[in-house]
Design a protein around this nucleic acid. Structure first.
Length: 473
RNA sequence: GGCGACAUAGCCAAGUGGUAAGGCAGGGGUCUGCAAAACCCUUAUUCCCCGGUUCGAAUCCGGGUGUCGCCUCCA
C-alpha cells in the first residue's frame, strides 16, 4: 500500500513516490528565533515530526532539514529592544527552541541550517537570478520580477492579476510591479549587513529557504512543509526563485497544515492570547499537548481550549494506564510463556498495526490512527483483567511502543518512572505491606489512610486481583 | 472583490457511493471492604438547509446559509 499525501501544488491526494528510491529529502520552514515558540508553531512542528517519523517507520531514509531564520526585521527589532546583538538574540532563542521542541518530543533535524551561515549561497542565487533576467537591482535593493516567471501563482492557485487586484501592498516606485518581492535589502543604519555586488545589505526572507533547501537536498527534492499561511507569498516566492534559477522543479510535494486557534479566536498579539510552549509546559505535561495536537488531522483547523487539553489528558492517561498494567505483567506475571489461547491473540495485534498503518498511509491521518490504538486498547484491557503471561505482555508492549514511537507518545522513560531513590521505593513497599496487613485484618480506616496519604504524596495505590500496586501519579 | 477551506452527538473528532469509527463528558450496571483502574450497556433513524444524480449519498452535482483562512509580517 502506497502512502498518499495531499499536495498543495495539485490540490489532491497523491501517491507518494520519492525521487530517489527509499531516500526522502524533506524541508520544513523553521522558526524566526526572536522569541519563544508558540503553540501554533508547535502544531507545525508536531505535524511535520509525525510525518517524518512515519516515513522512517515505513522504511524511508529521511534527510530532514529545518532552518532557523536568524536575520530579518523581527530579529533586528528584538535585538534593539533588548540591547543585544542580533546574534545574541538568535543564540538565546535557538536554545529555547530546542528546550521546547525536545519537551514536545520533536526529533532533531539532520541539519538545522541558519540563514546567516548561508549568505554566500543566497548571494550566488541572487546573482544567478539577475543574470537570467529574473531580478533587477535598484539603488542597493534587488527585486524579483514576477512577470518573468510564468508559473507564478501555481502553488496558491491564483492568477497574477487576481493577486494584484487584492493586493494591499503599498506601491513602491522602485519596483517594476507591485507584487515584486525583495531578494536583497540594502543596509539601513545600525543593521547587520554583508557585502554584496549591490553594496552592503542582507537577504530577503524568502531567499533563505530556497538557498538552504537546495544546498542540503538538491535542486529538486521531495517534501516541503509549512503552515498554511506560508503558501502565499513565502512558498510561492521560493518556487519562483528556485525554479527560475535552476530551470528544474523545486519541491515535489508541498504539505501545509491548518491553523490553530485559541478558544475560537485567532492567536494574535493584539488579543493577548499568544500561548507560548515555554509557559504551557510548566502547566501541562508536554506529551498531553502533543497528544492534543495529533488528535485532529493536520489539515483541519484545530481549536486550542482548556477543555480540549483536559480531554486529551484523560485520553492519553487511558493508554498510559494500559501500558503501565502491561509493564506490570511483563515484570511480575506468574506465567512466563504464552498459552495456546493467548497465541490466538497475536493476529489481532497484527491487525491493529495494519489498521494503524492504513490510517497513516492516508495522508497521515493521526486521528484515525489513534482510533485504531484505542480499539486495541479496549481489547487488551479486557484480556488483562484475567492476567496474562510475561511473553504476551511483552509482545503487546512492543506493539504499543512501536506505534507510540511513530506518533511520539507513550515514550518509554516517561512510563517507567522511578520513585527517586531506592530508599523511597523500599519505604513505599513497606507502607503497602503494613496496609496489606491492615486489609487482612479488615482495618479499613488504617488501610484507607495509607492509601490516601500516599495519594497526597503523589503515589497512586491500586488494588487488583493480583495484589496491590503503586505508581507515581 | 479574488482564491480556498470547513459545517458530523453535550464537547473534540474520523469517515469521499453501501447504510454513522474513536476519545472526552454524562447516565445505568459489573468488579471492589470502599475506592481507583477496567469492562459491559446507554447518548446522532442521522451527518447546516433545499433541490438533483443513483437501486442506494454524510459522502457526487447545483443552489443557499454560516464559520474561518489567505490575498500584508505571521506556523
Amino acid at each position: 500500500m502506497p502512502i498518499r499525501v495531499h499536495n498543495t501544488l495539485t490540490g489532491r491526494k497523491e501517491e507518494f513516490v520519492p525521487l530517489r528510491g527509499q531516500e526522502v529529502g524533506m524541508y520544513t520552514c523553521g522558526p524566526t528565533v526572536y522569541d519563544y515558540i508558540h503553540i501554533g508553531n508547535a502544531r507545525c512542528l508536531v505535524a511535520h515530526d509525525v510525518i517524518r517519523r512515519y516515513l522512517e517507520y515505513r522504511g524511508y531514509k529521511v534527510t530532514y532539514v529545518q532552518n532557523f531564520t536568524d536575520i530579518d526585521d523581527k530579529m533586528i527589532n528584538r535585538a534593539h529592544k533588548l540591547g543585544w546583538t542580533v546574534a545574541q538574540v538568535a543564540e538565546k532563542y535557538i536554545n529555547e527552541y530546542f528546550a521546547d521542541a525536545d519537551a514536545l518530543g520533536i526529533k532533531r533535524a539532520d541539519v538545522h541550517p541558519r540563514a546567516t551561515e548561508h549568505i554566500e549561497d543566497m548571494r550566488r542565487l541572487v546573482e544567478n537570478l539577475i543574470k537570467k533576467g529574473h531580478a533587477y537591482e535598484v539603488g542597493g535593493d534587488v527585486y524579483y520580477d514576477i512577470t518573468t516567471f510564468k508559473e507564478y501563482g501555481k502553488l496558491s492557485h491564483q492568477k497574477l492579476d487576481e493577486l494584484a487586484a487584492g493586493s494591499r501592498v503599498a506601491v513602491e516606485d522602485k519596483k517594476r510591479n507591485p507584487m515584486d518581492f525583495v531578494l536583497w535589502k540594502k543596509q539601513k543604519p545600525g543593521e547587520p549587513a554583508w557585502d554584496s555586488p549591490w553594496g552592503k545589505g542582507r537577504p530577503g526572507w524568502h531567499l533563505e529557504c530556497s538557498a538552504m533547501s537546495m544546498r542540503y537536498l538538491g535542486e529538486t527534492f521531495d517534501i516541503h512543509a509549512g503552515g498554511a499561511d506560508l503558501i502565499f507569498p513565502h512558498h510561492e516566492n521560493e518556487i519562483a526563485q528556485s525554479e527560475a534559477a535552476t530551470g528544474k522543479p523545486f519541491a515535489r510535494y508541498w504539505i501545509h497544515n491548518a491553523y490553530l486557534n485559541i478558544e475560537g479566536e485567532k492567536m494574535s498579539k493584539s488579543l493577548g492570547n499568544f500561548l507560548l510552549v515555554h509557559d504551557l509546559r510548566q502547566k501541562y505535561d508536554p506529551e498531553v499537548i502533543r497528544f492534543f495536537l495529533i488528535s485532529a488531522h493536520y489539515r483541519s483547523p484545530l481549536n486550542f481550549t482548556e477543555e480540549g487539553l483536559s480531554s486529551a489528558q484523560s485520553a492519553l492517561q487511558r493508554l498510559r494506564n494500559t501500558v503501565d498494567n502491561l509493564e506490570y505483567h511483563r515484570q511480575h506475571s506468574e506465567r512466563e510463556w504464552m498459552s495456546d489461547r493467548e497465541k490466538e491473540y497475536l493476529p489481532r495485534l497484527r491487525q491493529a498495526r495494519e489498521e494503524f498503518i492504513q490510517a497513516m498511509d492516508d495522508d497521515f491521518n493521526t486521528a484515525d490512527a489513534l482510533a485504531a490504538l484505542f480499539d486495541l486498547n479496549r481489547e487488551v484491557n479486557t484480556h488483562l483483567s484475567g492476567g496474562i503471561s510475561r511473553e504476551l505482555a511483552t509482545r503487546i508492549l512492543d506493539t504499543y511502543h512501536e506505534l507510540g514511537e511513530v506518533l511520539g507518545i507513550l515514550v518509554q522513560d516517561r512510563v517507567e518512572q522511578q520513585a527517586g531513590s531506592e530508599m523511597t521505593e523500599e519505604l513505599i513497599k513497606l507502607l503497602l505491606e503494613v496496609r496489606e496487613d491492615a486489609r487482612r485484618a479488615k482495618d479499613w480506616p488504617t488501610a484507607d489512610k495509607i492509601r490516601d496519604r500516599l495519594g497526597e504524596l503523589g503515589v497512586t495505590v491500586e488494588d487488583t486481583p493480583q495484589g496491590s500496586r503503586w505508581k507515581l501519579s
